[in-house]
Amino acid sequence: MTRMLGTALVAIGVTAAAAAPVLAPHAPDERFAGMLDAPPTLPHIVGDDGSWHAPFVYRWRLVNQLEQQYEEDRSQRVPLAWLSQGHVVQSADEANAPLLLLGADSFGRDVFTRLMFGARISLGLAATAALGAVLAGTLLGGLAGYAGGALDDVLMRATDFVMVLPAMYVALALRAVLPLVLTPSEVFFLLAGIFAVVGAPFVARGVRAIVRTERRLEYAVAAEALGATGARLLLRHLLPAARGFVAVEVTLLVPAFIVAEATLSYVGLGFPDPIASWGTMLHDASTNIRVFADFPWLLSPAVAMFLVVLGLNLVLQGDRSAATFAPEALRRTSS
């Protein structure tokens, strides 16, 4: 039950990211000039006079330029246009009454659209970084566990060292020493690399422990006696034993990386502005924290982040009994 709910939450996030250009009503950088900080346009089906209609929205009319207050223009219903211009749904009058399901940000961009495109960056980055951490961690842990001796010592001392480092500070320092203006794809791979380095030791330690125990078991001894080479023994017999552990690690690392990206982008050391990621969307409001109170829909990336992290946690809880709760989960989510 918990597991299904968790899987569903994660699946929604992944689908939104994958199908963003089609599902989202607009382009992520499209600005609606008269719609700065406009509230969400909720689709209605019952008109003012109580009559039923196909889903429609009302147009926002700016009533106070200074405080950016809007009022619904109820005189006219703007119907929704389904499957038009390559989008699943838009409003019929995009120029005057765009469909803003989660309102607009301070540049007049559609928050709902940016949320979906942001999922591509935020989830894509977290997944890439987790993959990198798992690959590097498995390789190093496998080597250390298999070889033992001096190599094991050196590798484990190195992981010890990286693990006690203040992770957020390391990421900050590494990001800050590079030019502030980088292309988005450079930032993507740079952050993925930094996160992978910080995350790999956690994987390496676990894999090492598993490989060391498995090595002494009969099947591994038998394979070795039959003349299996070290690489074959490791890849074919020992590392597969760590599969379960690695799967759990991924569900722990991905939330941590999502939050890390958001933190870095929030302080302005992540992606540059026009790029939509969940962190940059929060960054837009970071100069004056009070805008969140006036325009609560700007917090929707935080809600999206919460739902995805909750989904992954639920998968983890459903996966293992509640008795094997991993305390590292929190540490990494917050670091």
Binding site: P255, T263, L282, M305, F306, S334
Partner: peptide
């Protein structure tokens, strides 16, 4: 547990 300090503080 699914709300790291970044999110709790925003909330």
């Amino acid at each position: 547990l699914s709300m790291p300090p970044l999110l709790t503080s925003l909330l």
